[in-house]
Design a protein around this nucleic acid. Structure first.
Lengths: 332, 332
DNA sequence: CTGTTAGCGCATTCAA
DNA sequence: TTGAATGCGCTAACAG
């Protein structure tokens, strides 16, 4: 099946090539009879318009470039999944890239999106590295799952998530608090602030630091082990909030190996509410993926369609704690 | 940053547009001085060639369309991940679609790939539905993770996987065998055949049927529950091989709830060797993802570059059993 | 309502 | 070595 062009369809249907274009795009009036003929030929030969040509002509590709940082976390997988199906409903295809937390790769991806004339970009940034450049791109871009003032963004209120976790722990009667995650995380800030407001202290010795780059079980485990080694296996907290479910999971496994009971000895709350937490019975803070995706797409399409460069939009969605067994324990 | 074209680069560098094209593509000789100027301008203004135009002109898009059936199974996620990074190394971008096991969606995706002038297609088919049509597409296509004689394919030897599981169980002293998975699965055939060869019978009452469409924990669980109900909660086997890790996981959870000990009461082997099995300690049959992806890409690129329509290639890779605790038990 | 024409941005042939 | 000219497949303005 050699590739057919409109010209050939036109010849077969005995009309001009522009008429074929008209019936395909269906905006202008075409003689009913001619239209039928054209449609039949298209059907018969299985003609599909060349979108490279359309893109060139229309200066519009109907492509959205999506760049994520990893797919190890099931949360991102679901995000991409929803993104793809929602975008498809709106007539867009997804060009998917995975930066693997590498800013250089990220930038290459963005360049690729530009080269391919993507109408818009949705990005989970690797950090601040490329944000400025992205801003000057001249292509609508929205950040998802995070908030950055310099660009349109829709994320979760991470600060609020931390607060919710802290409140839960405080209400359950805990007095010694732990945190496990990356160094710079609004969740930690929110967590800590609620502790202070309630007269508690956060002891930095109870911060188990996980590297940004620790994106798989094994690496996270190493971070935990090295913490334990440093602390001579002594844990001085009765509850802990984890920056994401992967981290929560590894903490849980580590605890089980050491006969630390969850939640009796240590209560645990994770983040993302992926099925990892579901299968392991880990309480977790839920991110509304569908909402987030739909909102993101709305913001993006709005930028694509009305290029009025109004102020940046920064939307923060609300987190919800999903309670499971890992935090189901009240201190006397 | 308005979008720049070659023409404008040419003007800025005081050369003709074709010269700019020459220095970018670098095949033809260009005056060294002029080349330098062009490169500088490109660098300065951040020019990126419009690949829609290139695609149109070259009849080559450097896009590979990838259509998977789901991303719920982490195995597919990893597959896509590796696919993307390997394809990128080879200068290709991935257009990713998710058919969600719907043949209509699948066909739409393929059409989209054609419209976008994809140079090749890699597909995990939803079934036999679109295979014939795909074959007549005139665009190189290879099936991954499955084998179909009518198209190029690279998959695992599922039959062999079933055999390995059966052998393991037989050697461990089992005499009553179970299987959980979809109805038509070569793994089951392999499994059964080894049982027969060794003088055992497979009792179809021990086949827990999971629907093809049961692609998440909840649906799988329903299939299991309805089986248990039918059998009045009586399980007449001491070992079971699961068609994939998700299914194995649900079986495990169901068993735990019912105080059925794994592996003491029932030994379990899963399939795919995803991290689900790793975190749950489920023995599982490993699929060599990297091998599979690289081989697939090799086959595909070979088709793209030399359109010699030789015989179909059907490659079957070897499965390997990764033993964990869920099968670590010898019947006396 | 329809055909002719121009041109999107680029690679490439042909002259110079 | 280089510029001018052509055309990839399509949309859209224009003239009929």
């Amino acid at each position: 099946m050699a590739k057919l062009t409109m010209k050939e369809i036109a010849k077969l249907a005995k009309v001009s090539q522009s008429t074929v274009s008209r019936v395909i795009n269906g905006n202008e009036k075409v003689n009913e009879d001619a239209a039928k003929r054209v449609l039949k030929v298209i059907e018969d030969v299985g003609y599909i318009p060349n979108s490279a040509a359309q893109t060139l002509k229309r200066s519009q590709s109907k492509i959205i470039g999506v760049c994520v940082t990893e797919t190890y976390n099931p949360y991102f997988v679901e995000l991409v999944d929803v993104l793809e199906s929602e975008a498809r409903k709106l007539g867009y295809s997804i060009l998917l890239h995975n930066s693997k937390h590498n800013p250089i790769t990220e930038w290459e991806s963005i360049q690729n999106f530009i080269a391919r004339q993507a109408d818009g970009v949705i990005c989970i940034p690797t950090g601040e590295y490329n944000l400025q450049r992205m801003n000057k791109l001249g292509i609508p871009t929205v950040i998802i799952t995070q908030n950055h003032q310099s660009l349109d963004s829709v994320g979760l209120d991470h600060m609020q998530a931390g607060k919710i976790a802290a409140e839960k722990f405080i209400h359950a009667g805990h007095t010694k608090f732990g945190f496990i995650g990356t160094a710079l995380d609004d969740k930690f800030l929110g967590y800590k602030s609620v502790l202070y407001e309630n007269g508690f202290d956060f002891d930095l010795n109870n911060f188990i630091r996980v590297e940004e780059a620790s994106t798989n079980n094994y690496l996270i485990r190493q971070d935990i082990e090295s913490y334990l080694k440093e602390k001579k296996e002594q844990l001085d907290f009765t509850c802990i909030f984890a920056g994401n479910d992967l981290v929560a999971l590894e903490f849980l496994e580590m605890a089980q190996e050491r006969k630390i009971r969850i939640p009796e000895d240590i209560s645990l709350i994770g983040f993302d509410d992926t099925y990892l937490s579901k299968i392991m019975g880990i309480s977790s803070i839920h991110q509304p993926i569908e909402d987030m995706v739909k909102t993101t797409l709305e913001v993006l399409l709005n930028r694509i369609e009305n290029e009025v460069s109004t102020e940046k939009v920064n939307i923060k969605l609300d987190p919800v704690l999903i309670e499971r067994t890992s935090s189901n324990y009240k201190k006397s």
